[in-house]
Write a protein that binds this DNA or RNA. Structure first.
Lengths: 194, 194
DNA sequence: GAAAAACCGTTCGGGCTCAAAGTATAGGTG
DNA sequence: CACCTATACTTTGAGCCCGAACGGTTTTTC
């Protein structure tokens, strides 16, 4: 990746492309760099740590959540892992087939699904997490502890802004119009008419 | 997303799980928040801006790169967009079918593929980008310009660390062992023996 | 206590994701 | 000109990704 060079240069080109329309350069740079950093970190961790255990990033995150919080309801795991419940269903299927996760019914609420690690899953996390954390240290090693805290705090502001005001903002942008449906997604079953 | 609450609490739980093994909390928090922020920003922008034009995040980024840099070689677009060339092939197919991107051959090097926007593609970007940038401002609106610059700088350190030292690091970690092959991927064609 | 509304996990469709393998072109060497 | 190597794009396989639709359970409402 040529990386940063292009982001800075691009700012001028964007302005030119739009012919005078003002562009928020700092904001553009933050978003671009958040995404670049996320991709770089994910790729490094998958190749350096997770690959040898045949885990994807998402699979690891899901295992991590269940490991840390203990037996958990499915919806909480999806929320913590930052994936949709539909995606979680598939990931859990994979992990269950590998014998790392166990599914069980909620004793009193028949809608809920409880997830927990198997012994093998626990053992895997005890083995893999220290290596994972070591690479987290590697990717952030150009920053000292204070800089790390500052960076985390700044990112948290972004997350909070979206979480607390995003929904309202999206509604305001639509301004009454019905939200465009996704092109993909399950088709409505044809109903017999007549 | 319960979000930050959990990340902070989780730090204690991790320590307990590992029974004394030291964990780099600040580093863990940075990586977790980078990923959370990236997902939040992506989701907001897809739903608030891109959905109405039936664009995914990746499709938009690819269009953006070609828009800004003009007719470009395929490999450069993949690099700038931060996706693999295999992924780009598929994304370009989608965009070409929609009439937003044009493929053409390099005049002197038959291996190269040149990508450019169609008139429709140009028009789409002129229309969508200002809205996109407005939401970039929204998601970062809890930060002032200085904080944005600081945040971008910090993230850049992470990207640079991985780009400049990641490869070497991964080799050192493997320590001579052959890298575990991916479970998925194209199968080698059966060769006739005898 | 039955109908209605809310909630939960699964299924489904279209698409993105990577890396390994494959095809094709380009440039060098003998 | 035959190799051989390097480079560039495409194909493939397994998997993740979202959100809409769906079927089942629980709670609310009348």
């Amino acid at each position: 990746m040529p990386g940063q060079r292009s982001i800075t240069e691009a700012e001028k080109l964007v302005e030119a492309k739009l012919g005078g329309t003002p562009v928020s350069h700092e904001r553009m740079a933050v978003v671009a760099n958040i995404y670049r950093a996320a991709a770089a970190v994910r790729q490094h961790l998958e190749n350096a740590v997770l690959r040898s255990s045949d885990l994807t990033w998402t699979a690891f995150v899901v295992l991590w959540v269940i490991w840390i919080w203990g037996e958990s309801e499915s919806r909480h795991v999806a929320e913590e892992a930052g994936i949709s419940k539909g995606t979680l269903t598939g990931v859990i299927r994979t992990l269950e087939l590998r014998g790392l996760v166990r599914r069980s019914e909620h004793p009193s609420d028949g809608r809920l699904l409880l997830l927990s690690l198997t012994g093998e899953g626990e053992e895997l996390m005890r083995r893999v997490f220290p290596d994972f954390n070591a690479e987290e240290s590697f990717v952030t090693s150009r920053l000292d502890d204070d800089a790390c805290r500052a960076l985390a705090t700044g990112l948290r502001q972004v997350v909070l802004q979206v979480e607390e005001n995003g929904e309202e903002r999206r509604l305001a942008l639509l301004d009454g119009a019905k939200p465009a449906p996704r092109r993909s997604g399950r088709r409505r079953q044809a109903t017999r008419e007549g």
